[in-house]
Design a protein around this nucleic acid. Structure first.
Lengths: 208, 208, 208, 208
DNA sequence: TATGAATGAGGGTTCATTCAT
DNA sequence: TATGAATGAACCCTCATTCAT
């Protein structure tokens, strides 16, 4: 069927574009680069995406969806205490970051593109929503912890979700800048502190 | 020519460049734009900076120095408990972010430029160092807390510093994306949770 | 794309470039000028030549090859005494110069470019070789004259070839500077003197 | 006296300009380069020459005058046979070329500038006159040879002068291109052939 | 539909020239 | 008068986009 081939080629282009944008940045990447990486002709790209900007925008959604799907697929299939679930979740995010640290620059490009240029508004809004989704993911877990009396009732779900999400995100940045940075340890310790801070019965610090 | 005048003009250019780069991004900003913003001729810029890249790089240091100086000037002049000092410090950072949120895109540009392009290595290294400095700032406070028995002795100073620094940073990002985001609350709550988590005598959650 | 069309357009560009460089000089000619002269867009030029320097370099070879080909085609097809062959040859060169005197400035540009700038070494070497080829052309004729006992056996083939080649070349320069300059006469007389000077049986001066 | 200082500085500028133009070519040389080489400020140049073009034009005359003066000073002070005088003269020219081969590119720049650009007409005319002067120098010697019955009466003075002058000139070019080129031998042999060719009593070829 | 040659707008950079000191 | 900072015109080159094949 025609449709399938078209979708396949579109995905190939998105993958190629994601890689090239990650390596060279949005401005530094040319449509030629992307087409070549995808093994197609330059003009063909325009049969799938109306402009470089649109391609980049679509890469954002394609990439964000991949991440989210991975997380859902890999994570929500166990029965754990809320505390453990939180740790599992953040640790999952961190592992994903480590795996795909080569693609981290792509995220930086998204942010940069959300700050200026023709995609600014569209991208800013989309990223804002994406961040919300992640915050809500964490938020719902914290909320659950409150409801099960694991966490203190006065806990500020929204604020803390944002803080946790932000910490994980920014640890990725630091890991990207310095591969020697102990991202696993930092994430674990930060989460442990936070969870202790909001737990009704904090764990003892000694990990043995 | 008077040395002062040269310095004055150089600063004017740095200021103008910072603004233009923040508004249009590195790629979208032209030297003409910067020169016009500074009220000078295009060629004049090249009397102060050898290239657009160098200008951008210098803007980074100039901007980073400003931030650091501000923080040092505004912060280190009181006698507080370590816990309060930490809160004061992060709150200070947050206020600074709110004040200069218009310039937040500049930071995104720095990151993006550290990811690819001719400045990559130089910038990546410089940003890594800058992050280290900030982490050490927080780290030294936590260390002090441990030594004064305010914080648990088993606290992982390095990891937590990174987590705190990252959280604050990323909260800025969320605030920039969404001006309605309660960055002050999120920062405060996150810090409160963390500090509680590592405190020998956690505060009660009720703030009244 | 058809190979022929590409070659055709490349030749059109070389022709246009040769003309523009001849008229405005290398530094004074812009790629825009060349493109316009060839009836193409500015960017198209870069599809055929990677840079202005390379274009100029290729023009040199293209032009030199044209000259050499013309000479071979037009000259080597008769049975003449060596003396007459020499005269025919130089006269041929002179006629060619007169015909294409409008392009003489191009040669001056080649020399100038061989003296400084990014093409210096490449061009200097290439021109040196080209001069050698021409000298050898004349040299082989003189050598033949020696072998047929038309010319004195002690004749210095190398030195004389260079002298003859140089004289013809420089007469072109004088003709270019002053269109009233009798280049045919000067070439003929100079050659006559030289050939007489090395002939075993010099001709009488009166040509009637 | 003021006037002398001014003249001194002007000469220093001319010397510096000649060197820089020889090294970098007209287009490649900047006024800054010249000023720096002369140990002056950039603006000062404009106190002596109204424009870069004028400076270059003046360099031409200054340089041409130097050459001509040298030749007059060094040459016209002996009593020789016309034949010997001719050989002395050309050998003198050749020695001068060898001495100052480093400056040969300057001549190429003059030619190139005479071919196009704002100086074209002025320079072309000036160079044409200069060539005439040299031709007349040789021409007067040949004429003298005719009058003293050393040379054949039917000799074409004008044409031959041009040929000789051109040959010497072009041998310089070949020597510049290839330092291994035996310019002395080539000049000597070429002149010997020519002089034999027009002599009433040609010398025997064997030089012993 | 796939291709890549053609296009020209756009921008970083150089440098001759001016002018305030 | 000497200086060099300031200026902006000019140009090489890139690359997103179009379109004929």
């Amino acid at each position: 069927m025609r449709k399938e081939l078209r979708i396949e080629r579109k995905n190939k282009l998105l993958q190629a574009a994601a890689e090239v944008f990650a390596e060279k940045g949005y401005a530094g990447a040319s449509i030629s680069d992307v087409a070549a990486r995808a093994g197609m002709g330059k003009g063909t790209v325009y049969g799938y995406f109306p402009s470089k900007e649109d391609l980049f925008f679509d890469v954002f959604f394609w990439y964000a969806l991949q991440l989210m799907t991975d997380i859902h697929l890999n994570f929500f299939n166990g029965r754990l205490s809320v505390r453990e679930a939180c740790l599992r979740f953040t640790s999952e995010l961190v592992e994903r970051m480590i795996e795909s640290i080569k693609m981290y620059p792509l995220t930086l490009e998204f942010w940069s593109a959300a700050a200026s240029g023709g995609l600014r508004d569209r991208l800013k809004q989309a990223m804002s929503r994406m961040y919300c989704d992640y915050r809500n993911l964490i938020g719902s877990m914290i909320q659950q912890g409150i409801e099960t009396d694991e966490f203190l009732p006065e806990t500020d779900v929204e604020g803390l979700s944002a803080g946790i999400m932000g910490a994980i995100d920014a640890l990725g940045l630091q890991f990207w800048m310095d591969p020697d940075f102990d991202i696993r340890g930092a994430a674990e310790q930060t989460m442990a502190a936070i969870l202790n801070g909001i737990s009704v019965h904090p764990e003892t610090g000694d990990k043995g």
